[in-house]
Simulated scan of single mutants.
Amino acid sequence: MNNLFKEHVKKAQNIIITTHIYPDADGIGSQIALCMALKSIGKNAICVNEMPLFDRYKYLDPQDVVISYQEYMDKPFTEIDLLIVADTNSLPRIGKNTQELVLNSKELLFIDHHPCPRELKSIHCIDTSMAATGELVGNLISDIGVEFTHPIALALYTAILIDTSSFRYPTVSANTHRLIAKLMDTGVRPPRAFNQINGTKKIGYMRLIGEVLSSAQTNESEEVAWICLNEEMIDKHKSDAEDTHGFINHLLILDNIKVACMFRQNGKSVKLSMRSADANIDVGVMAQALGGGGHNHSAATVLEGTLEDIVKNSIEKIQLMIDGSKD
């Protein structure tokens, strides 16, 4: 894999790095860190995303390497030698417009840690044993001889911090922490890095999380727990949907818990996020059975219907899948 990355980089001069639409910190941090590293060795690299960078991530981009597709089209490369897609191995996930860049690229390379077919994995930089795409990118940056600067390290640290829910997922390894140590050697400080990405919250955030958690429920076996929220709740407390992503992790401390769920209604659809609290339970497979996907410990799907019906049907199916895993 490392040699594959080196060969691609060696042959390419004009490099575009993108990530999935509505990106999280792992996608953003990974692409920014990789772009800064490639620029440091003389490559003409830029990050092009479907939409402009969210304000909450701009501190991770001190060199302004991230632009939107529309901005890129104002002054496109004459040739794209290499298009790198970070934190997904599905082209439809990078956005309708950004996909068009693939047609003008000499080479395409996925850098990711999500499950994929073996055939795809064999010709791309995909390693599902990595705790985050940021960990994989950190290793690739080291392999091409680039030393971590503080901006590169902060982007990678933040990517790994968020995608592991503060290092609590089972894919976090000793090697993950060895990389974290190298990143901290550049001056990255965990308290500040945590506060920067999570932001300073308003009182509305506290009231929202209080309302959501006070309605938490479990099924009879207490192996499945869930919380629900909708747009009205978020608006009432003057919060943002981005603030709710970590709510589900509060359920993981419950006794007997195997699968934690969060149902968030958005218009006529409901996003079901799932987390596994048991190494033997694969929520990625469960999410696939419900039309979505993800990791064995973190996954999601989007379902159509009323919140009440979706909660009832989903919890019943999840419990059946848990029972089936015991056979």
Score class of each variant (00 low, 15 high):
residue 274 M to T: 07
residue 106 K to E: 15
residue 74 D to A: 11
residue 19 T to W: 02
residue 83 L to S: 12
residue 324 G to W: 00
residue 99 Q to E: 14
residue 26 D to V: 03
residue 265 Q to W: 09
residue 48 V to T: 06
residue 43 K to S: 07
residue 13 Q to N: 15
residue 155 A to E: 03
residue 194 F to S: 09
residue 17 I to G: 04
residue 315 I to T: 09
residue 215 S to P: 09
residue 122 S to T: 12
residue 222 E to V: 00
residue 233 M to N: 12
residue 295 H to Q: 10
residue 288 Q to V: 15
residue 231 E to A: 06
residue 68 S to D: 10
residue 285 V to H: 07
residue 76 P to V: 09
residue 275 R to A: 06
residue 251 L to R: 09
residue 220 E to G: 12
residue 144 I to G: 02
residue 81 D to Q: 11
residue 234 I to E: 08
residue 79 E to V: 11
residue 47 C to D: 02
residue 318 I to Q: 02
residue 319 Q to N: 12
residue 300 A to H: 09
residue 248 I to T: 08
residue 284 G to D: 04
residue 65 V to G: 01
residue 166 S to E: 15
residue 317 K to T: 15
residue 164 T to A: 10
residue 211 E to F: 03
residue 216 A to S: 14
residue 231 E to T: 12
residue 301 T to A: 04
residue 176 T to G: 03
residue 292 G to K: 06
residue 17 I to L: 11
residue 211 E to K: 14
residue 17 I to W: 04
residue 228 C to M: 10
residue 180 I to E: 01
residue 235 D to K: 14
residue 147 E to P: 01
residue 41 I to P: 04
residue 38 L to V: 06
residue 210 G to T: 10
residue 149 T to K: 00
residue 92 P to G: 06
residue 213 L to S: 04
residue 135 E to L: 05
residue 233 M to C: 07
residue 54 F to N: 13
residue 84 I to E: 04
residue 39 K to E: 15
residue 226 W to C: 02
residue 219 N to P: 13
residue 207 R to N: 13
residue 182 K to V: 06
residue 180 I to A: 00
residue 302 V to R: 10
residue 46 I to K: 01
residue 17 I to R: 04
residue 170 P to N: 10
residue 59 Y to R: 01
residue 181 A to F: 00
residue 142 S to W: 00
residue 46 I to L: 08
residue 146 V to F: 00
residue 145 G to P: 07
residue 321 M to R: 04
residue 278 D to P: 11
residue 137 V to S: 02
residue 13 Q to I: 10
residue 172 V to C: 03
residue 84 I to Q: 05
residue 193 A to E: 04
residue 29 G to Y: 01
residue 298 S to K: 03
residue 269 S to Q: 14
residue 223 E to W: 05
residue 95 G to Q: 03
residue 16 I to M: 04
residue 269 S to D: 15
residue 183 L to P: 02
residue 170 P to V: 13
residue 45 A to K: 00
residue 100 E to Y: 05
residue 146 V to D: 06
residue 234 I to Q: 07
residue 279 A to P: 13
residue 260 A to E: 12
residue 174 A to S: 13
residue 101 L to S: 02
residue 73 M to E: 15
residue 94 I to A: 00
residue 59 Y to Q: 07
residue 22 Y to L: 09
residue 265 Q to K: 14
residue 284 G to I: 05
residue 110 F to I: 07
residue 320 L to M: 12
residue 166 S to M: 13
residue 3 N to W: 10
residue 258 K to Q: 15
residue 249 N to L: 09
residue 151 P to C: 02
residue 321 M to S: 05
residue 42 G to V: 03
residue 62 P to S: 08
residue 116 C to M: 01
residue 111 I to N: 02
residue 203 I to A: 07
residue 255 D to P: 13
residue 33 A to R: 05
residue 57 Y to H: 06
residue 9 V to M: 00
residue 174 A to D: 14
residue 123 I to Q: 12
residue 300 A to K: 05
residue 245 H to V: 15
residue 6 K to Y: 08
residue 288 Q to Y: 10
residue 294 G to N: 07
residue 225 A to D: 11
residue 13 Q to E: 15
residue 297 H to L: 14
residue 170 P to T: 11
